[in-house]
Design a protein around this nucleic acid. Structure first.
Length: 364
DNA sequence: AAGACGGGGCG
DNA sequence: CGCCCAGTCTT
């Protein structure tokens, strides 16, 4: 953990090789590179924050056609700004951009405050890396960036241990980024680092065979390019438990109920669920005729993005329901209706169902 | 189906 | 410092 990877080469060597690579393989005709004004670079950097170049280009062109200058943007309605952002995601970026444009007009006489990283980061939506990119790209003054591409490249070259989201790791990466940043050709260097990470030292299947730093790269030497940057520790997912009633009628059909329209499995069809054994019993007693309950089947899990669901199937039988119930259906496995099923329910019905085709104990 | 991505905000 | 959030795209 407490590891301080020293730079693997002198800045001049790194810059020379990177810029040589950039001259041949870099991207030199991106829309925001011509003309390369602070406003255009700013808008492009905000759009690029969570979005790839290929996606951004179309949005950038439309945005510039409608809001060709900072003043026009500042005067626009937020609704219109958001409209042109539709599909890009992370709409707070658009709101911040719009708000910042108004601040620049009101407080900086309509000129982007390019004098320092601090002045830029004071604007909403502009962090340290974005500020560095704007200054380097639009003024050519030396400024350091550390976006995802740079983090990935530097993590690999130096085999930096620890997830870059950790402040200590991020500090180390900033130090490395600063170490390699040149005094001259900074705009090209900045673009080169982003292009290098995006096209050669990419997340999966990096092209190490064509890398100008293959000789020095510590991750490559260890055959561990896949391990860097170290990925975010996945938090232990909260666990919830549920009982799923697999109720068959006299004809062997399964009772399904439709979930509420919004939320988890919204609108899908699922088995009746219960937290407690007693609730399941109560449901059977209240709604079914001549019920009998089988023993619990082995629990299995279904993992969502934000929690893990432990499902215990409870097979049961009944003659019929003792009332007509809205939002439910007897599901005939022989001729399955075309319903949207929750994934684990589908798995249960397809794979695990044979268990409950056996006669249940206690039911003649 | 899961992970990546930059910045902001909170305790 | 640690943690959460927001949307789309990629793998």
């Amino acid at each position: 953990m407490a590891q301080e990877p020293a730079p693997i080469m002198a800045p001049a060597t790194f810059q020379q090789r990177l810029l040589h690579w950039f001259d041949q393989y870099g991207r030199h005709d991106l829309p925001w590179q011509q003309p390369r004004t602070a406003y255009r670079v700013w808008v492009s950097e905000i759009m690029l924050q969570q979005t790839q170049v290929a996606t951004v280009i179309g949005y950038f062109d439309h945005f510039m056609a409608r809001f060709p200058s900072l003043e026009v943007l500042a005067k626009a309605d937020q609704d219109e700004v958001l409209h042109l952002w539709t599909g890009l995601g992370y709409y707070a970026r658009a709101r911040n951009l719009h708000r910042a444009a108004r601040i620049v007009v009101a407080q900086h006489d309509g000129e982007m405050p390019l004098e320092s990283v601090e002045a830029l980061t004071a604007l909403p939506g502009i962090g340290r890396s974005t500020a560095g990119a704007i200054i380097a790209q639009s003024t050519g003054r030396r400024a350091v960036i550390l976006d995802g591409n740079v983090k990935r490249s530097l993590s690999r070259l130096h085999a930096v241990e620890g997830w870059p989201g950790k402040p200590a790791v991020e500090r180390r990466l900033w130090a490395l980024a600063d170490h390699y940043t040149p005094q001259r050709r900074v705009a090209d260097y900045t673009q080169a680092m982003m292009d290098f990470g995006a096209t050669l030292c990419r997340r999966s299947q990096p092209e190490c065979g064509r890398c100008p730093f293959q000789q020095e790269c510590l991750a490559y030497a260890r055959h561990e390019t896949h391990r860097f940057p170290v990925s975010k520790p996945k938090k232990a997912l909260p666990v919830r438990q549920t009982l799923m009633l697999v109720l068959q009628d006299a004809r062997g059909r399964i009772w399904l109920e439709q979930r509420p329209p919004a939320g988890l499995w919204g609108g899908l069809w699922s088995l009746p669920q219960f937290e407690e054994e007693s609730q399941l019993w109560e449901w059977l007693a209240q709604h079914t005729t001549n019920p009998s309950l089988g023993s619990a089947e082995p629990m299995f899990t279904h993992t969502f993005s934000h929690f893990r669901l432990e499902i215990t199937p409870r097979p049961a039988e009944c003659d019929t329901l003792n009332e007509v119930r809205e939002g439910g259906v007897w599901y005939d496995l022989e001729r399955p209706p075309e319903l949207g099923l929750a994934a684990p329910v589908k798995a249960l019905l397809e794979r695990q169902l044979p268990f409950s085709l056996n006669p249940l104990p206690g039911h003649a």
